[in-house]
Design a protein around this nucleic acid. Sequence first.
DNA 1: TATGGCCTGTGG
DNA 2: CCACAGGCCATA
Length: 259
Amino acid sequence: MPELPEVEYAARVARDAVAGRTLTTLRALHAALARDGAVDAAQVLVGRRLIDVRRVAKWQEFVFDDGAVLVVHFRMTGDWAVTDDAAVPRHARLELGFDDGRRLWLVDPRVLGRIAYIAPGTARTTRVGPDAHDPSLTPVALRARLARRSVAIKQALLDQAIVAGLGNIYAAEALWHARIHPATPASSLSLARVTRLLDGMRWALGEALGDPGRQAYGESLDRLAVYDKAGRPCPRCAAPIRRMVQGQRSTYWCGRCQR
DNA sequence: TATGGCCTGTGG
DNA sequence: CCACAGGCCATA
C-alpha cells in the first residue's frame, strides 16, 4: 500500500526494532521472492551488523557494517511485522532474523514486494527525482521537471523519476487540492498552476504524515477528498466525484472544480 | 511513451 | 465469475 509517508514510517519501525543488531537469518517464504536470486545473493549479509535503515524515495535501504545494502521495496501491499519469537505472521514472505531473537517479517499479501542486494561500494542505479517535500523542489524546479513531458499530469506525478513519493492516492488528492484536471498535459501547466500543485502535493503528504492510522494495508481511506469516492460529493463544491482510468490506474476527480 | 506482467485477496 | 487493488519494471 505504501506511499512515501507510509514507507517513512515503516523504515522507522524497522530501524527502531533491529538497527544495531547482527543478522542471523535471511529466508524467503515464497517462491516469487526467491526466484530472482536476490535472497541467495544477500546471504553474505548473515553475520553482519545492521547500522541503519534509510528511506530513499519508496525504497528502504538496510545498511550493514561493511557498507553492503539490502534494498527492500513494498510495492502495493508490503509492510513490516516485528516479533520476538518464531511464529510466522500471516502473509509473511521474507524473514530477517537477528541475534537477539527479534525477527522482522516482510508481510505482503500480493507478493509484489522485491528485495535487492547491493555489494559494498556499488552504486544504486534506479533514477529517482527529489522527494515531493524536498525544499529544493521549488515551483520553478518542478515546472522544469514537467516541461518535457506530454503525458497527463496525473501520470507524471506517479513517475518517481520526476518527483518521488506520490502514489495513486496522493496524486489524485494533490490534483484535487490544486484544482487541476488530471488529464492536463504535464508540460502545459503554468507556473501559477504548478505552484498550486506543489502546495497540493505537500498538503496530501502532510495529511498522511500526521495520520499514523494509515500505515497498514487496508486501513482508513475515508478521510480522503476524492480517492475511491466516485459518485460522492466533492468536499469543496458538492459536485459528484468522477472516476476514469489513466495508464491502467483509477483516477478520481471533481468534474466541476478541477479544470 | 504505452502496455503487460507480476501475485494474491476481496467484494460485487 | 469478474473487476479491481495504495507500484514498479521489462519489453515493444
